[in-house]
Simulated scan of single mutants.
Amino acid sequence: MRIKKALLPLVVISILLFTSCIPNKDLVYLQNSKKNEKSIEVSESVSKPYRVQTNDILNISIKALDQRLVEMFNPSITTSQGASQLSQQSLYFNGFSVDDHGNIRVPVLGELNVLGYTVEEIRDVLEKRLLDEYFKSESRMFVTVKLAGLKYTVNGEIGKPGTNVLYQDKVNIMEAIANSGDITMTGDRKNVQVIRKLPHGFETHTIDLTDVSAIESPYFYIQPNDYIYIKPLKQKSWGTGTTGMQTIGTIITALSLITTTILLTRNL
């Protein structure tokens, strides 16, 4: 009977250790369950080009042999040193915003509908309109169209929650998370939630970042204005610790408190 009583605390501690510690498989990204496969190809549907939506901001740059002819098309800020510089703030005020009808207002050309177009398609439309109506091929006109940064928001169990802007054409969710300080140990990597704005409204999707098949998800590459939410693991609410040593420390503290309370009660 005494042996059973002595073993009881060990059993309780063992159960707490197994249930409260976060296993390594819940922390490692992109694990391949099929060990014989060396690589996975990304399908075409994942890497489709982004199509412009309302409230996007475009950075349009037009160059020609005589740059004075196209100055009005190029919003820029000149610093005290005389260099031309575009910041996120200046792009907000000087870039080409897509209104609720999917139009941008371009000097001379007027309103141009770009809703659902890729940046390459917008560039082709601009070049054609300008060459057909205002310029000649001898002007050697060169048009560049880009999104004014890829803005996204990360919240929840993340190192640096908040809104970030990356100046890249494509950003995957792993890069976005790394740029935000990585998911904390108590973050659920198996159930990352992505809320995406689409023309018909918002869609919510979950992606398991511990599974290598996540790279085949249409949500692996983020889009402008995506909201990424990292849910907490159950271990966080239990408060027993994320590692074995932390859990043991918590248990010892709790047992010491109980023992002290019992001894003080008996002495009263």
Results as ranks from 00 to 15, higher is better:
residue 73 F to G: 03
residue 175 E to R: 08
residue 135 F to M: 01
residue 57 I to N: 05
residue 117 Y to Q: 03
residue 101 H to L: 15
residue 136 K to L: 12
residue 23 P to Y: 00
residue 147 L to C: 07
residue 181 G to H: 04
residue 82 G to V: 01
residue 215 I to D: 04
residue 152 Y to F: 10
residue 26 D to M: 11
residue 114 V to L: 00
residue 191 N to K: 11
residue 225 N to W: 09
residue 76 S to Y: 15
residue 142 F to K: 12
residue 47 S to T: 12
residue 207 I to G: 03
residue 237 S to K: 13
residue 198 L to V: 14
residue 194 V to G: 02
residue 119 V to H: 06
residue 249 G to Y: 09
residue 268 L to R: 15
residue 66 D to R: 10
residue 177 I to M: 01
residue 164 N to I: 11
residue 76 S to P: 14
residue 77 I to D: 13
residue 255 L to G: 12
residue 175 E to I: 09
residue 112 L to K: 06
residue 92 Y to I: 14
residue 225 N to I: 09
residue 191 N to V: 10
residue 70 V to K: 02
residue 218 P to A: 03
residue 218 P to G: 03
residue 103 N to Q: 06
residue 264 L to M: 08
residue 87 S to N: 00
residue 212 V to I: 15
residue 230 I to C: 02
residue 214 A to C: 06
residue 166 L to E: 07
residue 28 V to F: 05
residue 154 V to G: 03
residue 128 K to R: 12
residue 10 L to N: 09
residue 78 T to D: 04
residue 74 N to T: 05
residue 131 L to H: 07
residue 153 T to H: 04
residue 170 K to H: 08
residue 58 L to I: 04
residue 135 F to H: 03
residue 19 T to F: 07
residue 218 P to M: 04
residue 242 T to N: 12
residue 97 S to G: 13
residue 17 L to D: 02
residue 186 T to P: 13
residue 235 Q to T: 05
residue 135 F to Q: 00
residue 191 N to H: 12
residue 261 T to D: 07
residue 9 P to C: 01
residue 16 L to M: 05
residue 9 P to E: 00
residue 268 L to G: 15
residue 105 R to A: 10
residue 213 S to I: 14
residue 215 I to W: 02
residue 104 I to N: 02
residue 116 G to I: 00
residue 106 V to D: 09
residue 176 A to F: 04
residue 259 T to Q: 15
residue 155 N to K: 14
residue 82 G to P: 02
residue 85 Q to F: 14
residue 261 T to M: 08
residue 204 T to K: 08
residue 149 G to E: 02
residue 128 K to M: 10
residue 77 I to G: 12
residue 216 E to G: 13
residue 137 S to P: 13
residue 208 D to G: 07
residue 213 S to G: 11
residue 210 T to D: 00
residue 126 L to Q: 02
residue 237 S to I: 10
residue 134 Y to S: 07
residue 25 K to C: 08
residue 109 L to M: 06
residue 15 I to E: 05
residue 111 E to T: 13
residue 114 V to C: 00
residue 180 S to L: 05
residue 73 F to I: 04
residue 126 L to N: 01
residue 90 S to H: 00
residue 172 N to S: 03
residue 22 I to L: 01
residue 123 R to S: 01
residue 93 F to A: 13
residue 227 Y to M: 12
residue 6 A to G: 15
residue 1 M to Q: 11
residue 266 R to K: 14
residue 68 R to K: 13
residue 41 E to S: 08
residue 239 G to C: 06
residue 218 P to T: 04
residue 255 L to H: 11
residue 257 L to S: 15
residue 116 G to H: 00
residue 50 Y to G: 03
residue 167 Y to S: 14
residue 190 K to W: 11
residue 130 L to R: 01
residue 199 P to K: 00
residue 53 Q to V: 06
residue 103 N to K: 06
residue 106 V to A: 07
residue 119 V to T: 08
residue 122 I to C: 04
residue 165 V to D: 01
residue 242 T to K: 12
residue 112 L to N: 07
residue 78 T to Y: 06
residue 100 D to Q: 12
